[in-house]
C-alpha cells in the first residue's frame, strides 16, 4: 500500500518523532511504499540541520534523511510553519536576508497543498501528534 505520515511533534520533546520513525521503518520493512513524511506544527523541528543530540541518543534528523535516501521517501516540511520557527533552506535564507541555513536536502520546504495531495493520493495517512 501507499502510505504517508503526518508528524506534528518536536523531536526530543515528545515521543511522536520516535514513534513515527519506528512506524516508518516497519512500513518499508513490510514492503509498503512510504511516499512522504509531512512535517507540520512543531514537527518541522525534525528538519533542523543543526541538531546535535548526545552521541548515545538516536539522531532523528539523520535518521529521517537515511530513510529518505534508502527508500525514496519525500520529506516535506510545511514552509509557513518552518519559517516562523527559524527553519530556512538556502533559498529562503537568501530571500529573508539570513546568514545561516537550517534546513537542507533531503528535507524540502513545501506548501500545505502537499499535505492535502499526499493525504488524498495515498491509501493511508497516519498522524503522529505530540
Amino acid at each position: 500500500m501507499r502510505y504517508a505520515i503526518l508528524l506534528m511533534g518536536a523531536p526530543y520533546s515528545d515521543q511522536a518523532s520516535h514513534s513515527a520513525l519506528r512506524f516508518a521503518r516497519a512500513l518499508v520493512a513490510r514492503g509498503h511504499r512510504l511516499e512522504a513524511v509531512f512535517f507540520y506544527h512543531d514537527g518541522v523541528y525534525n528538519a533542523a540541520r543543526l541538531a546535535a543530540p548526545p552521541q548515545d541518543e538516536p539522531h532523528l534528523v539523520d535518521a529521517w534523511a537515511a530513510l529518505a535516501n534508502e527508500h525514496r521517501v519525500a520529506l516535506q516540511v510545511c514552509i509557513a510553519a518552518a519559517l516562523r520557527r527559524g527553519l530556512l533552506d538556502e533559498r529562503e535564507a537568501v530571500r529573508h536576508g539570513k546568514d545561516g541555513v537550517s534546513v537542507e536536502a533531503p528535507f524540502e520546504l513545501t506548501g500545505l497543498g502537499q499535505l492535502v495531495d499526499i493525504g488524498t493520493r495515498c491509501d493511508r495517512l497516519v498522524t503522529f501528534g505530540p
Binding site: Y40, A80, G111, L112, G113, L115, V116, D117, T120
Partner: peptide
C-alpha cells in the same frame, strides 16, 4: 490553514 489550503485546491 490546512482546511483553507485544501479548499483552495478544490477539495
Amino acid at each position: 490553514d490546512a482546511a483553507l489550503v485544501a479548499a483552495a485546491f478544490g477539495r
